[in-house]
């Protein structure tokens, strides 16, 4: 997703200017999504151009302009919320590419790679567990839920490493070319 729906969702509650959108967005995500103010302004301009938000009130000090959701923006937001997250699964991690390459390279040291990756996932689980604990302690239940999702994903990745570790690897990758 882009920032677009995040901005629409925040404007649903009340009109906000750019900095307020940035601050609320970052607070909501608990630091797990970097945004810079430039991105926010660009997004607001595009949303205004497309008729999904409109300026409200006069420009405040230092030219701050608040925006509110238009009826079209409201509809776009509702449609997006009602839409399940589908389409191809996004795999951002290098390990997928590393594994594909390692099966094609004679000295790919797959076993070692899997063992190292397993360790890295265990460490990530440890970090996530501690983050979840801290989020709960701080009353950030929404962040704790997000972290729980990450825990389950990482557990799946770890299980995948386990499955691969029990397999025999040849040069099967070469045959697909």
């Amino acid at each position: 997703m882009s920032l677009k729906y995040g901005v629409l969702g925040l404007l649903k509650a009340e009109p906000l200017h750019g900095y307020e959108v940035k601050n609320r967005f970052e607070a909501m995500l608990g630091g797990t999504w970097d945004v810079n103010i430039g991105q926010i302004y660009t997004t607001l301009q595009r949303l205004e151009r497309d008729g999904l938000v409109r300026p409200v009130g006069a420009r405040g000090d230092r030219g701050k302009q608040s925006y509110e959701l238009s009826p079209a923006g409201q509809k776009a937001l509702d449609d997006w919320l009602a839409q399940p997250d589908s389409g191809p699964q996004q795999l951002h991690e290098e390990i997928y590419v590393k594994l594909l390459l390692a099966t094609r390279i004679a000295n790919g040291d797959l076993k070692g790679m899997l063992a190292r990756q397993k360790r890295a996932y265990l460490q990530r689980l440890r970090d996530l567990n501690r983050l979840e604990e801290r989020a709960r302690r701080d009353g950030r239940i929404d962040l704790a839920r997000l972290v729980r999702g990450a825990l389950l994903h990482t557990e799946a990745d770890l299980k995948w490493m386990d499955e691969l570790s029990s397999e025999r690897f040849g040069t099967e990758g070469a045959k697909t070319e």
Partner: peptide, 8 residues
């Protein structure tokens, strides 16, 4: 948090 998890 940002060192452990990134939504984006």
């Amino acid at each position: 948090a940002s060192d452990v998890i990134r939504v984006r």
